[in-house]
């Protein structure tokens, strides 16, 4: 458990339900993630990928064990404090329907900075540069329904990176994309990681996506069965 670690899972487990109906989504897990890593969480459907990412991203709390983010125990924080720590540290990209349909691409990106209290000028500059870096120059004012699935995911990526949080968590960001678009999105994430130095944890069961990662953590039935660093 290196003290400078960005993320630390210390026997963290998550189960749902009680007694007979209990489902162990994630068994007791130890994991350390350092800053600047580019990690893919792999595994079949139902293996606990989303559960692991939700715990890491402070969206959810472990049923037992601890999740430490920059040394702070998520279970020891109040709901509000956990939310504000999450706001400070984590950006999210989900599988699909990431965007607020009533906001344009630019507004969606700005929204993530508005809630973090950034000023109007900074918001618009950062939104512009984030949208440009995901290759959406000229499409800033389109609504999500006017964008393709790949473009929508790129807006979501722009939204996750624009506030400048150190950790970006992406749960199956390419699942709804064709392989070419998916591959392009992965190269984009890698490029952003190289340029901005942020940490990426994403999940996928697509071998092509796993190939892009520097470290692949493989889950099976709620346990880490492999942890490969290239």
């Amino acid at each position: 458990m290196g003290k400078g670690a960005l993320l630390n899972l210390d026997g963290a487990a998550r189960f749902y339900g009680e007694g007979e109906n209990r489902v162990d989504a994630l068994l007791s897990t130890d994991l350390t993630v350092e800053e600047g890593e580019f990690i893919c969480v792999a595994g079949p459907s139902g293996s606990g990928k989303t559960t692991l990412l939700n715990l890491s991203g402070l969206l959810d709390l472990p049923s037992s064990g601890r999740v430490l983010v920059l040394g702070r125990d998520s279970g020891a924080l109040s709901k509000g404090a956990r939310a504000s720590l999450r706001r400070e540290l984590v950006g999210f990209v989900f599988q699909a329907h990431n965007l607020l349909p009533v906001l344009t691409a630019r507004e969606n990106v700005e929204y993530s900075m508005l809630v973090r209290g950034l000023g109007a000028k900074e918001r618009s500059e950062r939104a512009q540069s984030a949208l440009t870096s995901v290759g959406l120059l000229g499409k800033e004012d389109k609504f999500p329904r006017e964008l393709s699935g790949g473009e929508q995911q790129r807006v979501a990526v722009a939204r996750a990176i624009a506030p400048g949080t150190p950790l970006v968590i992406a749960d199956e960001p390419t699942a709804n994309l064709d392989s070419v678009t998916g591959k392009a999105l992965m190269s984009l994430l890698y490029e952003l990681k190289e340029r901005e130095g942020m940490t990426f944890i994403f999940s996928s069961h697509d071998p092509m996506v796993m190939e892009c990662a520097e470290r692949v953590i493989t889950l099976h039935d709620g346990s880490i069965v492999k942890d490969n660093t290239k």
Partner: peptide, 16 residues
Amino acid sequence: FHEIGIQLAVGDTPRS
């Protein structure tokens, strides 16, 4: 509900 979940995940507060 899903959208509200996104809003919360993106960092919006329950208050807003």
